[in-house]
Design a binder for these strands. Sequence first.
DNA 1: TTGCTCCTCACGTCACGTGAGGTGGC
DNA 2: TTGCTCCTCACGTCACGTGAGGTGGC
Lengths: 278, 278
Amino acid sequence: MLDSVNRLQIGAFSRLTHLSIKTLRYYHEIGLLEPAGVDPTSGYRYYSTEQAQTAQLVRRFRDLEMPVADVKAVLAAPDQDSRDRILAGHLDRLRLQLSQTEASVDSLRRMLDGSIGQVLIAERELPRAITLSVAADVSRAELGAWWRDALQHLHAIATDVGAEPTGPAGGVYEDGLFTDDQGWARAYLPVQNTARISGLECRYELPAGRYAVASYDGPHSDADRVYAALGTYAAESGRDAPGPVREHYLTGLLDTPDQSEWHTEICWPLAEPTSSSR
Amino acid sequence: MLDSVNRLQIGAFSRLTHLSIKTLRYYHEIGLLEPAGVDPTSGYRYYSTEQAQTAQLVRRFRDLEMPVADVKAVLAAPDQDSRDRILAGHLDRLRLQLSQTEASVDSLRRMLDGSIGQVLIAERELPRAITLSVAADVSRAELGAWWRDALQHLHAIATDVGAEPTGPAGGVYEDGLFTDDQGWARAYLPVQNTARISGLECRYELPAGRYAVASYDGPHSDADRVYAALGTYAAESGRDAPGPVREHYLTGLLDTPDQSEWHTEICWPLAEPTSSSR
DNA sequence: TTGCTCCTCACGTCACGTGAGGTGGC
DNA sequence: TTGCTCCTCACGTCACGTGAGGTGGC
């Protein structure tokens, strides 16, 4: 297998594969690409020409920023199917990332253009409400994917129990999601026939409360502007309160895939105005 | 400036800006986003609501993976023009990155499809040649951009001295570029009327030598397959020689922007077959 | 007073790169 | 024998995140 002519030192293998020597040593260390042989006394690594194939694949995957652990999984995949699944998963992530980048560029442009209007804020007393709901402790990175699943799940349940939603879907987001990139998120669907769902695990009673409310059109990537406006309003009126923010998806994913047509309401909790808090 | 109602603790500011507390502390530490005030005894950071604007911008830029140093530069930019220039530069980088990612995906697909043919290798004696040439010590990351500039520069000079190129442009690449991600690269244009250019600084005499030569069609991102094939050939015939690789751009950037129409020749140096090297 | 928010400091992460100091193979 | 290639080891980079242990403000 490692006869003299098919036995490459790390430098030669590096020239073959366009992986730097440092990178090859690192891939050896973490077990991603083991040399065909290692001289026990000198520690010299020796590669075979056949390994260039694998190295080539690794380089492609890493070029696509696939995490090393995933590359390992692809190489270790027992069959073509599981291999394809990991790859497809990564390509999906790339697509998602691309669309997010595009959204960020657009959003940045709007910010710099000054083509973003004033945010209109109204105070509102939100009433108690019965909902079908699921909650989970998620990281900010997972939030989007989790939401898709949660909403679909809720609609399936609503159909099952014959409960027509009485209003737009909403979400409740714990502070930790923003301050710590990790916290509880809740998706809900307001419903009416409480009898049928009173026994269900996913029954959730949305508490009443006073909120500063603002709405905006367009993709969710612009939401932070509204958060800033609401937070500023609450702070400047001396009624900033820690507590979960609520969002109402008046027009959202379920209505149209075109994010520019989305319409969202953000509700920032207000503390009771106390005489001391001036 | 920091009256009691416009004075946010880090947690409140985090909720406003969607920058995590850890991130805000980090941005303070590196001087990217300084709190409006810091309590000297408790060390508490206090932010003003006006800072949300800046924080918002920072978040957008970081979402676009702009390096923190560049974000700093954008914020410190004295006028709109220099600001726009940095931003445009970054957007260009993003575009480039996107096209490279697409090329990698395509290339990966071709590899997995098996829709890449056999690489045909021929041995050739390349003759001595006079060229107009520039060289530089570059990193692999810079190589592409450097090449564009170098080639343009060479053509400008060729026009200046009235030297018609006598063949396709080429490049010479030191091993270190692949093994160390850093090394000498040379771009050249073969020319004929040596009299006119004999005194020029950019005159370069390409040495003769024996090479294993293979050519391929399509974008340069597929080149590594050919490198692997050539390196394997050289190794298995026992004549692997360290030394710079040469590339000939038979059809390239100057002829068409459509990379799928490109045609490239790669020349791998061969060592003299010695009797000892079997 | 309690408990929540905030603080610092040290260390970890990811995928390598840098550089020192030293040995091995042709 | 020379010099080039290779080796290990420790530390650095980038932009934060994790967690311990402790103080401060309402």
